[in-house]
Amino acid sequence: MNAPAYNFAYLDEQTKRMIRRAILKAIAIPGYQVPFASREMPMPYGWGTGGVQVTAAILGPQDVLKVIDQGSDDTTNAISIRKFFAKTAGVATTTATAEATVIQTRHRIPERALNENQVLVYQVPIPEPLRFLEPRETETRRMHALAEYGLMHVKLYEDIARFGHIATAYAYPVRVNARYVMDPSPTPKFDNPKMDNCPALQLFGAGREKRIYAIPPYTQVVSLDFEDHPFEPYRFNAPCALCGAENSYLDEIVTDDKGGRMFVCSDTDYCEGRQAAGHYGSLSAAPYREKAGSHG
């Protein structure tokens, strides 16, 4: 039987070269989706194969890798991907945003500001921001070529006419470097402002759709809006119940079937860091109370 033997970071060198070339062009043309010959990965399409291929192409032995899904290091798919690289590349992994050199993410940007020595790799399901307005690739490609984005504005405006607001809460389209309209992946629009003028390099991988795109560091990223309906990031009414943070993205946890609920940070590393530094919310988790010497 042809027993498999796998390369460092799983991908063969020819594949890495192909992906690396695509990454360089993606950086040179901010927001433009570079087609690449996405490989069949040992995890399903739609589960991060694009992000995994980008990470595999850039990762080296000196890197420290963090993987998050929904902001958390402990969600099952994040664990699965982190283990994949720990096993195939032997790299150090971390849950601490500050320690990571490469962060692969699904659906969130960490709360802690990123720095110049970091690369943020997004997993992208549908890279084409115009796809739900125009299903044909031949058409959307032409629209990008001509920077013909009227259709997107019409859609957003229809929302306003119908609901009084732009009814897009996540995967909120942005314009990169005043040229390409880009899908930021299904991150909540809360995270959009973090993409603008970010010191870290941002890379996006869509495996099933076979596209790679990028935002270089310090690049203008503007969320689409209208003068009379400016972009408003989503805000929460209450602070995190565990760490008291007032400016982080919160998960709603349903605590019983009688309407009980609480709101806690989706970025688990950020929340734990704040708690360890002595910040408390109204319902701080037990381990941290014990640490603080009180009895819950």
Partner: peptide, 13 residues
């Protein structure tokens, strides 16, 4: 190749 690529990627970025 990985190390060289990272230098080129950083240069391009």
């Amino acid at each position: 190749a990985q190390s060289t690529f990272r230098s080129v990627m950083d240069a391009m970025a």
